[in-house]
């Protein structure tokens, strides 16, 4: 079925995934010897300090899992958006779903005024849950609006324009809320906007991973529809696809994945845009049977890599992940596009 070359590539990517997963556990701003890390991981805590155990099990491990699944989810969401709109420049944030999350957070800080910068250190459990919940509700409101509109339009290009407009409106509302907020709250909001994979604690991890795995599974069910959509609406319809219903499903799954990730990590730019391009270039295919799993794995790889860079030793704490993904993602896309151009010219 799948050519041998592609199986090989999947094997190599799996290797990278495992490697980066463990590197994320081994490296961080605090230097912990390798053998200590291994001891903690296999449950043999004798001889390791309590702080080290805490850092690995309560910080590095959940952060690694969060990066892995957030990366996979954003990459798949980006792939589905690019196929639906037949446009290589769209990403999961295009329909204003992440802006909706931002609005939820902005409203929460405005009305409660209780999110101080200390909430982001993970000390305030209630603040954390409130943050996640308001971000999720905010994106859900925008998502419902988009679904409502797409059920009436059934035309991808009109939907894209309406989505972009909604994103602008939501962004403007965020601006208004910020204008009337206190200085400290605006700072807290800005910090949230930088994104972080360290907001998901061990207690919330099962829910986070569970919902994302569910969303990823649903995306696999759209394989046939996505392949047909590559041909354009008229061909797809002639081949028996119900465009309207497929569009709603795809927007729903994308919105769900984006909402979950943004709620937990804040906005993370570029993974959703860059990874589908990587997947298409590496596997040289447009078949979603390969692109969907490939995007999941490459999304995980790239997110883990960015997370590793963000916490390189020498920095105090970790750098904002949203900046790192852009700094690493943009050159990768440029490099692949230039390479592809040379290839097609020869």
């Amino acid at each position: 079925m799948v050519p041998v070359r592609k199986i090989w590539i999947f094997g190599v990517i799996t290797g990278f995934l495992v490697l980066l997963f463990f590197m994320n556990l081994f490296f961080g701003s605090v230097i912990i010897p390798f053998n200590q890390v291994i001891r903690v991981l296999i449950g043999n805590i004798n001889g390791t300090s309590q702080t080290e155990t805490l850092i690995i099990l309560n910080f590095r491990l959940p952060q690694t899992y969060t990066a892995l699944f957030a990366g996979a989810a954003l990459a798949v969401a980006g792939l589905m958006m690019q196929t639906l709109f037949r446009n290589p420049l769209v990403d999961p944030s295009i329909l204003g779903i992440s802006s909706g999350a931002g609005l939820g957070v902005a409203l929460l800080m405005f009305f409660t005024g209780r999110i101080g910068s200390e909430a982001f250190a993970g000390a305030d459990w209630f603040g954390h849950i409130g943050l996640t919940l308001s971000a999720f509700l905010g994106s859900l409101v925008v998502l419902s609006l988009i679904i409502f509109i797409s059920s009436r339009l059934g035309n991808a290009i009109t939907l894209l324009i309406v989505g972009i407009m909604i994103a602008y409106v939501v962004g403007a509302l965020v601006g208004l809320v910020k204008y009337f907020s206190q200085k400290e709250d605006i700072y807290a909001f800005a910090i949230w906007g930088l994104g972080s994979f360290s907001n998901v604690g061990n207690s919330q991890l099962p829910l986070f991973i569970g919902t994302i795995v569910f969303g990823l599974f649903l995306s696999l069910l759209m394989m046939k529809s996505l392949n047909l959509m590559l041909l354009g609406e008229r061909y797809a319809e002639n081949l028996g696809l119900n465009i309207r219903i497929s569009t709603i499903y795809i927007v729903l799954i994308t919105g769900f994945l984006t909402a979950i990730v943004t709620a937990y990590t804040g906005p993370v730019a570029f993974l959703g845009l860059a990874v589908p391009h990587l997947a298409r270039s590496i596997f040289k295919t447009a078949d979603h049977k390969i692109l969907l799993p490939a995007s999941m794995m490459l999304g995980g790889v790239l997110a883990l890599f960015c997370n590793l860079v963000a916490r390189l030793p020498g920095f105090d704490g970790s750098l904002p992940i949203n900046s790192i993904t852009s700094l690493i993602g943009a050159p990768i896309v440029i490099w692949f596009i230039l390479k592809h151009r040379n290839f097609s010219a020869s």
Partner: peptide, 12 residues
């Protein structure tokens, strides 16, 4: 059907 619509994907 065979239409005049263009397929925009570069990898298919």
């Amino acid at each position: 059907i065979v239409t005049t619509d263009k397929i925009v994907d570069n990898h298919i």
